[in-house]
Simulated assay, not measured.
Amino acid sequence: MASIQPELWVDGAATAVEFYAAAFGARVLHRVGDGEDVVAQLDVGGAVFWVVQADAGRRRLSPPAAGGTTGRVLLVVDDPEAVHARAVAAGATATSAVAPEHGWLVGRIVDPFGHEWEIGRPG
């Protein structure tokens, strides 16, 4: 068995956990820490990722501190339109509406912490 569980470095990790719960319906699997300085493992329908407080001293830069982002997360869901709309309602910025592209139905957002997401499904 293999899996990839990305770790997102954010300014305000506890606030980010709340955003991902509201935007994507994320469930907290594991959480440690106090205040905004938390480490949390989240699950969105079997897609697992981590949210961690950014720390420049440990070279863990949030997108704003890095001056941009170095990648994008693709969240594969059954209903991209609904999840895209929910994320925008929770505070994300839509960068493209959900539409057919390269054999996928996909839309893009930037979350309030600067991370880019594609929300889509094949077909």
Rank of each mutant, 00 (worst) to 15 (best):
W104F: 14
V83R: 11
A66M: 12
V48N: 05
F49Y: 09
A82V: 13
A47W: 08
A40L: 02
R72D: 02
L42W: 04
D34W: 07
A54N: 06
G91C: 12
V48E: 09
A54V: 09
V98N: 12
L61A: 08
Q53R: 12
T69E: 12
G45Y: 07
L74G: 08
V52E: 13
R72V: 12
V38S: 04
T69W: 10
R60D: 07
D37S: 10
S62M: 00
G35S: 04
G91Q: 14
R60M: 14
F113Q: 01
A82I: 08
G46S: 10
V73Y: 02
F49C: 08
V51L: 15
H102Q: 15
A87S: 05
A82K: 13
H102I: 08
V73A: 03
L61P: 11
L61S: 08
E81A: 14
V52D: 14
D43M: 02
A87V: 04
G67D: 01
G46Y: 06
V88Y: 07
V106D: 01
A92Y: 14
G107S: 00
R86Y: 07
D78H: 06
L42S: 07
A66D: 07
E81G: 13
S62G: 01
V76A: 10
Q53S: 13
V39T: 08
I109N: 02
A47N: 13
A92T: 11
L61Y: 06
A85V: 05
V77I: 00
V32I: 10
A40K: 01
P64R: 11
A65W: 06
A87N: 06
A87R: 02
D43V: 01
V83P: 08
R72K: 05
V39P: 01
G57F: 02
V51T: 03
V88Q: 07
W104I: 03
V38P: 03
I109Y: 01
V76T: 11
R60F: 09
V51M: 02
G67N: 01
R59V: 06
T70E: 08
D55T: 02
A99N: 04
T69M: 10
H84N: 07
G107W: 00
V98R: 15
G71F: 05
P63E: 04
F49T: 11
D111E: 04
W104C: 14
V51P: 03
G33V: 04
A87H: 03
D43F: 01
D78M: 03
V52G: 09
R86Q: 15
T93Q: 15
D43T: 01
H102Y: 15
A65Y: 07
A99W: 01
A66E: 04
Q53H: 13
E81D: 15
T70R: 13
S96M: 15
V76N: 09
A47H: 11
D55G: 06
A85D: 09
A65K: 14
H102F: 15
T69Q: 13
G33A: 05
L74I: 07
W50L: 12
P80I: 02
V76L: 06
A47P: 10
A99H: 14
